[in-house]
């Protein structure tokens, strides 16, 4: 927590998105606190959580932005999509409507993040098998068609929660190793050794893309 010597090499920025009540905050809470919060207060606007993980012997700090799911909050949560290295897109396997809205969430994500942002689709509440409305196969197909990573998880039992967050981090780390992710771009959602204050370098690309209309 302190500003002392950093004990991690990277910061990855994540966002968690999806309809209201699908369990976004519970997934985050399960991941950061390793327990299930039955009456987890719903998110107001945006909240964040952090946890340090290890990938390939590298310590990575995940800075995770949890968003409110109600439609009207989208305008205020959108600004947190930008510069996310990972996006966890969550639906509830027991409510088909939350699955049906995925394409809209995906459009938002694609429009507002960079092409190398890793998107992980999570079908939450996998413990509620008896009331399932979306099959694994159907969601898997959707994920494959759209190039998303996918798993069904349960914030209640903790099943696959850790895996989803870690798999996403591994994929991002892989992108860095392959040189596909430009660490100098503030858009990448990744900071390496946060030794310097703030982010001082903007790539020319980012500068070209930014809307400099001042009318």
């Amino acid at each position: 927590m302190s500003a002392g010597p950093y004990n991690y090499s990277y910061i990855f920025k994540y966002i968690i998105i999806g309809d209201m009540g699908v369990g976004k905050s519970c997934l985050l809470h399960q991941f950061t606190e390793k327990k299930f919060m039955a009456s987890c207060p719903h998110t107001i606007g945006v909240e964040f959580g952090t946890r340090i993980i290890e990938v390939d012997k590298q310590k990575i700090k995940l800075q995770i932005w949890d968003t409110a799911g109600q439609e009207r909050f989208r305008a205020v949560t959108r600004s947190y999509y930008r510069g996310a290295a990972g996006a966890l897109m969550v639906y509830d396997i027991t409510r088909r409507s939350t699955y049906n809205h995925l394409s809209s969430w995906l459009t938002d994500t694609r429009n507002l993040t960079n092409p190398s942002t890793v998107i992980f689709l999570i079908g939450n509440k996998s413990d509620l098998e008896s009331t399932r409305e979306v099959t694994y196969e159907e969601a898997k197909k959707f994920a494959d068609e759209n190039g998303l990573m996918f798993a069904e998880a349960s914030a209640m039992t903790g099943q696959n929660v850790e895996e989803a967050f870690l798999e996403t981090a591994r994929k991002i780390y892989q992108s860095i190793q392959d040189g596909r992710l430009d660490l100098n771009s503030s858009e990448s959602g990744v900071q390496h050794k946060p030794a310097q204050p703030g982010r001082t370098s903007l790539t020319s690309d980012a500068q070209n893309n930014k809307d400099n209309c001042s009318c």
Binding site: Y80, R82, R199, T200
Partner: peptide, 14 residues
């Protein structure tokens, strides 16, 4: 927050 146009929303917002 970094230079204007960086991808960090204003820090007080959240």
């Amino acid at each position: 927050q970094g230079p204007e146009g960086a991808f960090e929303p204003p820090l007080t917002n959240v």
